[in-house]
Design a protein around this nucleic acid. Structure first.
Length: 510
RNA sequence: GCUCCGUUCGUCUAGUUGGUCCAGGACGUAAGAUUCUCAUUCUUAAAAUCAAGGGUUCGAAUCCCUUACGGAGUACCA
């Protein structure tokens, strides 16, 4: 019988969610949806020292903005609540004790200071320290100490940790859905800390395995940085006797910085001018980081570009709706090598979504922009404007530059454009065109265009000359979109006013 | 250092079990076409001796080995 697909996204609230993290969440979500399974959000806050206020809320907001819906977990609840690991502490202690009883783990009383001293000492000798089978019986552990002494130390309040007793010279055979078969000798691994008495919390490894088991997680889809600890996780499942129900693993390739080497970091974004966070983030010490949302990216575009960073459909399709991603996503088609993020392609994706965006939605973005510049703009007018400029824009932030002339009549006329277009019969022709427009009642662009073009053709006027001169008169420069659309938006009165002013200001031409 | 993972145009990548790949698409770049400016759109071009070397094979980007390079991990962090 096929197991129900249950996946989890398990971030740690130590700061803003990086786009790499959003991508991991997205792949988990797509996988869950495709298989009719559950997408669980679990917060892994087992490091009391690194907790950052606001981080959890930020994670929730980011997922929501991307359209990633949580089926179960923090913020929505579910049958395995609580989903915040700090609220499940007593569960982990029980399992840590179980491993001690079964002999798969032991108490260790070394203080971090002692360990650091040993490390430093060995490093000085050119050796590396590993807490493993070679040393665990020489250190202050329950493997060396007598049962009474262990009991006494615990009772008198000595701090202790539980470490996994990694066996010597055993081959762990693992399978990864993306990377295939991997084998590791346990002798190269060390005795990881599973639980610490100092804050009564487990470390990632224990909490992760216990929770995935308890929450009946079927597939673990996570970043490649976890691959080296996969053998430990296999060994933990084995020690608990859960190997037959352990989840299947898939380790995602890393997101690399656009240039140079290494993985994508916040600094790259600052330097190369693109965000690395989905949403704007203000760290507790007041440092502000830009976000895709605030930069004007549409969530659909962001999700689309993220989906293609590491995964590809095997076809030539590049634009995907969330539903299409759900239908077509496959772990088999996730690459093995790191994906380098390209700001150029990110722009292109957003432009694609901009071009087909509904005018009503864009108008809602446009109105406040106009207001910011001191102009009231009706929804009808905004829709018209936005319909004319959207395929020359990549971000809503460009809207004003592309259309401000509709609100602000030219004060002066661009000199270069004058030199180029205001010559020959320009003055005379624009003057004639003005009179024709003055006689038109219906200023809809199709109508004015039909009438004006008929006149242009009948008289054999150069299209380039008349239209460019016309543009200079109305806009004041060699920019803007279709002249007749512009006139329709300006209205007859304003159009004529601008023409009259231009004819009065610009020289008669020869 | 040690362990693990990776390596196809500048970038993202396609290339299912080796032949139809003198390697396809997209972004970016260049040229041209269209257009009332600009943009959009369209067409075309340049761009990878498939990291290098060695095998296996009639035949390898595809299988094997070695090397190089890159990445990750190596915490009482996740």
């Amino acid at each position: 019988m096929e197991r129900r697909v249950r996946v989890r996204f398990a971030p740690s609230p130590t700061g803003a969610l990086h786009m790499d993290g959003v991508r991991t969440a997205l792949y988990n979500y797509l996988f869950a949806r495709q298989h009719g399974g559950d997408f669980i959000l679990r917060i892994e806050d087992t490091d009391s020292n690194r907790f950052v206020p606001g981080a959890e809320e930020y994670i929730l907001d980011s997922l929501k903005w991307c359209g990633i819906e949580i089926d179960e977990g923090v913020s929505v609840g579910g049958p395995h609540a609580p989903y915040r690991q700090s609220e499940r502490r007593e569960i982990y202690l029980k399992y840590a004790m179980q491993l001690i009883e079964s002999g798969d783990a032991y108490y260790a009383f070394d203080t971090p200071e002692e360990l650091n001293a040993i490390r430093a000492e060995m490093e000085a000798k050119g050796e590396t320290f590993a807490y493993n089978y070679t040393v665990r019986e020489k250190l202050n552990t329950s493997l060396r100490l007598s049962a009474e002494e262990v009991k006494e130390r615990i009772e008198r309040g000595d701090q202790w940790v539980v470490r996994f007793k990694m066996p010597e010279n055993e081959i762990v055979k693992m399978d990864d859905l993306i990377r295939g078969h991997v084998e590791v000798n346990t002798s190269t691994l060390d005795d990881k800390v599973l639980y610490k008495s100092a804050d009564s919390l487990p470390t990632y490894h224990l909490a992760n395995i216990v929770d995935d088991h308890l929450m009946e997680v079927s597939h673990v889809i996570r970043g490649e940085e976890w691959l080296p600890s996969l053998p430990l996780h296999y060994m933990l499942y084995k020690a608990f006797g859960w190997s037959d129900t352990q989840p299947l693993f898939a380790h995602l390739p890393l997101l690399l910085k656009p240039t140079g080497q290494g993985k994508l970091s916040k600094r790259d974004g600052d330097k190369l001018g693109f965000p690395v966070f989905p949403l704007r983030w203000v760290s507790p010490d007041g440092e502000v980081s830009r976000g895709y949302r605030e930069d004007g990216y549409f969530p659909e575009a962001f999700v689309n570009l993220l989906a293609l960073l590491g995964w590809n459909p095997g076809t030539e399709q590049e634009i995907f709706s969330m539903q299409e991603l759900i239908d077509q996503f496959s772990l088999k088609r996730v690459g093995k090598s790191g994906a380098r993020f390209s700001p150029d392609k990110a722009h292109w994706f957003n432009a694609q979504y901009m071009h087909v965006r509904d005018n009503k939605e864009l108008a809602a973005l446009y109105i406040p922009i106009a207001k910011e510049h001191g102009y009231e703009c009706s929804p009808e007018k905004a829709e018209k404007i936005v319909g004319c400029i959207k395929n020359r824009a990549t971000f809503p932030g460009e809207f004003w530059d592309l259309s401000s002339f509709l609100f602000e009549a030219p004060e002066a006329y661009d000199e270069k454009a004058q030199k180029k277009y205001w010559k020959g019969d320009a003055h005379k022709l624009v003057s004639q065109l003005r009179d024709i427009l003055a006689g038109i009642e219906n200023f809809e662009n199709q109508n004015t265009e039909a009438i004006c073009h008929a006149w242009i053709q009948e008289n054999g006027i150069s299209m380039g000359l008349i239209m460019n001169a016309f543009r200079l008169a109305i806009v004041g420069a060699s920019k803007g979109f279709g002249m007749y659309e512009q006139c329709e938006i300006l209205g007859k009165e304003e159009t004529l006013r601008r023409l009259d002013k231009a004819l009065a200001t610009l020289p008669e031409t020869v």
